[in-house]
């Protein structure tokens, strides 16, 4: 109904005195699905305008933290803020115009075309009676183009290959037209060239001014693309900062139980993990 009115919340107008934190931040956030907490009292400021990558061993709570940033999972205690304001105080639709999430296994509805899927990303810009907004066509066309899916716009989502399908979902998230994009293991199920295509796309979107937060498994990819690297272990943030400050052999040994050398990536000079051979009992060399 309030079309045309800017939905971005002004920073600094609600916290008297101290300037509000730009973008997403977590304060003392504890998250759990049942009894045991998965994320324990994490405080984290996501650099606004940065490309943040969260890494950590399986079950360390990185995806869970991402979900709470997306307002999908409600913290047991603590709170998540957007531009200094508790996200629970925002209406779902208003939040969804500013922050988008691509979860690990989204479901493509039966019979949907790529274009139809991407159009669903416009949901937060619509209301019950006005299921169309003037920016729709342009946002959808641009999203398809950025994701390289323009040619496949009329294709059935069910007929796509893994790489194409992931790009279709990226396009849906782009059509949502938000300043922050959260991606939960977006490279899983992609072959290596599609992984790099996707990461390059993230970097490109980041250069265009979007804040990206991605959960990744591959430390070398994380170090190569992140402007801000967050390492989690046992539900806590154990290190964060620029990749070459954070990624040390000691940290990898402690967090991943992997002995390694850290060498500069020959192409980008970002830190690169070279694991040592593991000597297993009963085996030689």
């Amino acid at each position: 109904m309030e079309k045309g009115k800017p939905v971005t919340i002004d920073a600094g107008t609600h916290t008297g005195g101290a300037p509000a934190v730009q973008g997403l931040s977590a304060r003392e956030v504890t998250l759990s699905y049942g009894a045991a907490p998965v994320v324990k009292g994490v405080s984290l400021e996501v650099p606004h305008g940065g490309l943040t990558v969260i890494v950590g061993p399986n079950g360390c709570g990185k995806s869970t933290l991402l979900k709470s940033f997306a307002r999908v999972l409600k913290p047991v205690s603590g709170h998540i803020a957007l531009h200094g304001r508790d996200v629970r105080a925002l209406r779902g639709r208003d939040f969804a115009r500013q922050v988008a999430l691509l979860p690990q296994s989204p479901i493509a509805p039966e019979g949907i075309t790529v274009q139809g899927l991407v159009r669903r990303g416009r949901h937060p810009h619509h209301t019950l009676l006005r299921q169309w907004s003037p920016d729709d066509d342009r946002a959808i066309a641009l999203a398809l183009e950025r994701a390289g899916m323009t040619e496949l716009a009329e294709a059935q989502a069910g007929d796509l290959s893994g790489g194409q399908r992931q790009r279709a979902w990226i396009a849906m998230v782009l059509a949502q037209d938000t300043e922050v994009i959260l991606l939960d293991e977006p490279t899983t199920f992609l072959d290596i060239s599609h992984q790099y295509d996707l990461l390059e796309l993230c970097a490109e979107l980041n250069r265009d001014g979007r804040t990206i937060v991605a959960v990744l498994h591959d430390l070398n990819q994380a170090a190569r693309f992140a402007s801000h690297l967050v390492v989690m272990n046992h539900g806590e943030v154990v290190a964060e900062g620029a990749p070459h400050d954070v990624l040390t052999a000691e940290l990898v040994a402690e967090v991943f139980q992997l002995d390694c050398d850290i060498v500069p990536d020959p192409r980008t000079a970002t830190p690169m993990v070279i694991p040592h051979e593991r000597v297993r009992a009963g085996k030689t060399g």
Partner: peptide, 8 residues
Amino acid sequence: EISASLGS
């Protein structure tokens, strides 16, 4: 998750 992140 998608539906929540789309504001529904």
